[in-house]
Design a protein around this nucleic acid. Structure first.
Length: 351
DNA sequence: AACACGGGGGT
DNA sequence: ACCCCAGTGTT
């Protein structure tokens, strides 16, 4: 690497971090388990969103053992609204392995920690550097943005192989005496100063060592090829109330989108079939009458998919036994079960 | 290497 | 409306 400011960059960065770092709940602990929880929550998720979830989560599961033995339904409820729910299931799987195989002590080396479910190259490096003070790289989108500018790296960060370039760069730049502050310093810099659009270069502690600032155009980096294929699905959602005032809910498949989360039954509108009939057949019910044909209409955007939802409120009679993973609940019971945000939107209107 | 997998914030 | 993501697992 022909970057001439290795030492100065790292020193300024770490000094800035110690001066300006945000006071975050997971920065008040050195417990590797808690650092782990925070890092998993922070994957693809902003700090401000994570803070209340982290606090509730650690309150509920203060030790690695308490999380290892938690019921999955309860765990998903704690994660409700955070998204990427496989993170929660993988985290518990990894935590279980640590309890059973390592006597509850999170491994302190990349080889072992990387075998844990949900711990990829980034999270491994983050835990090792922050909790164990190991000089390990932790390259995420933030680090790639900052370093692409500092080193004027123009490779496409959407390509998996590009991450390797940044890992090598971090290995060269990292402060061996304080690797945790170095890695977190880049993250805070990326969050507070070296932002995706309109970077605040005039406030940047490493401006004078930034290649793009001095010779190029920071705002045009990093280079990232965007993929825009997103599809749409239209659903008729049935808010079905029985004569006891209970509502029908179903548990989604244990695989795929929103795995194991609960929802109001919904029928995919493909051609122009009879969704009401399909609903009655699928759930072994009879619609006695419609209470509100236009109860609620909205759309919900996922990263790769948009749901268009037409919700109808109906009164139903139970014909025979309900299908598995399907159950009537009172409004009070229903709130104990983990539901994705689009269903919470419906629930809020219903209440 | 491509894709699936949530959700919220910024402009 | 359209942009941005503090990644990992599966295929």
């Amino acid at each position: 690497m022909d970057y001439p400011y290795k030492k100065e960059f790292s020193q300024n960065l770490v000094e800035w971090f110690h001066r300006e770092k945000r006071d975050l709940p997971w920065r008040r602990t050195s417990d590797p388990y808690k650092i782990w929880v925070s890092e998993v929550m922070l994957q693809q998720t902003r700090v401000d969103t994570v803070i209340p979830y982290y606090n509730r989560f650690i309150d509920k599961y203060p030790t690695i053992e308490t999380l290892a033995y938690a019921p999955q339904e309860e765990l998903l409820k704690m994660w409700e609204g955070l998204g990427y729910y496989s993170r929660a299931r993988n985290l518990q799987s990894g935590v279980k392995e640590v309890v059973e195989k390592y006597d509850g002590t999170v491994p302190d080396n990349r080889h072992d920690i990387s075998k844990l479910k949900g711990v990829g190259p980034y999270t491994a490096g983050a835990i090792l550097s922050i909790a164990y003070n190991k000089p390990e790289h932790a390259v995420d989108g933030n680090v790639m943005r900052v370093l692409s500018r500092v080193l004027n790296i123009t490779d496409d960060i959407a390509l998996p192989k590009t991450r390797k370039i940044f890992e090598i760069a971090v290995e060269e730049l990292i402060d061996e005496n304080d690797p945790g502050s170095f890695n977190q310093g880049i993250m805070d810099l990326g969050a507070m100063i070296c932002t995706p659009t309109s970077p605040k270069c005039l406030l940047c502690p490493v401006r004078e060592f930034c290649t793009a600032y001095n010779e190029g155009d920071p705002a045009s980096l990093p280079v990232k090829s965007k993929k825009t294929k997103t599809k749409s699905e239209k659903y008729k959602v049935f808010i079905a109330r029985n004569s006891n005032g209970q509502f029908l809910l179903e548990k989604r498949s244990e695989e795929g989108l929103l795995a194991n989360m609960w929802q109001f039954p919904m029928i995919l509108i493909e051609k122009e079939h009879e969704p009401n009939k399909k609903f009655e057949q699928t759930y072994h019910l009879q619609i006695s009458h419609t209470i509100d044909e236009e109860f609620l209409t909205f759309k919900h955007v996922f990263s790769h998919l948009t749901w268009f939802m037409d919700c109808i409120l109906v009164e139903v009679n139970q014909e025979k036994l309900l299908p598995t993973h399907t159950q009537f609940f009172t409004l009070e019971q229903l709130e104990q079960y983990p539901m994705p945000v689009p269903m919470l939107k419906i629930l809020n209107v219903l209440k």
